[in-house]
Amino acid sequence: MNREGCYRTRWRWLMLSVFVLLALGGCLLSVMQGVAAITPADVLQILWQPSARTADQIIWNIRLPRTLTGALVGANLALSGAILQAVMRNPLADPHIIGISAGAGLAGIVVLIVWPAYLFWMTPVAFVGAMAAAAVIYLLAWKDGIVPVRIILAGVAVSAFLGAIISGILIFYSDRVHGALLWMVGGLAASSWKDVTAIA
Rank of each mutant, 00 (worst) to 15 (best):
W121G: 14
R89P: 07
I151N: 12
W13Y: 11
P95F: 03
M32K: 08
P91F: 12
V114L: 11
P40I: 09
A78K: 02
S80D: 05
M184K: 08
A71F: 14
A200C: 12
A198C: 04
A164H: 06
L188S: 04
C6K: 13
M15L: 14
I98V: 13
W115H: 07
T9Y: 13
A141C: 01
D42W: 01
S51D: 09
T67F: 10
V196Q: 02
V73W: 03
L106W: 02
A134G: 09
A126G: 06
L140E: 08
A36N: 03
A154K: 14
I59R: 01
I152Q: 01
N76L: 15
R12Y: 07
R8I: 01
F161I: 15
M88I: 14
W11C: 04
R10P: 12
W48Q: 13
A157I: 12
V177R: 11
W183N: 08
M1C: 06
V111M: 12
N2C: 00
A132F: 15
L84K: 12
T9P: 00
L188D: 04
H178S: 07
A200P: 05
A180M: 08
T39D: 15
A190P: 00
V73S: 14
A189R: 03
A75K: 07
V149T: 11
A86Q: 11
A154H: 15
W121E: 05
V156D: 06
R63W: 11
D175T: 13
G168T: 06
I137R: 09
R66L: 00
P124V: 03
A200R: 14
G25A: 13
I166N: 09
A41E: 13
P91T: 11
F120D: 06
A78T: 05
I171C: 03
G168Y: 05
L68Y: 09
I165T: 10
A75F: 10
I165M: 06
V158G: 11
I98P: 01
A23E: 00
L72H: 07
D56R: 04
K194N: 07
P50V: 13
V18D: 02
A141S: 04
C6E: 11
G105D: 00
P95R: 02
P116V: 05
S159K: 05
V35G: 03
G34Y: 01
A71Q: 12
P65R: 08
Y7P: 08
L182R: 09
M88Q: 06
A154M: 11
R176Q: 09
A86E: 05
L72Y: 02
V136F: 12
M32F: 03
A180S: 08
L44M: 12
Q57F: 12
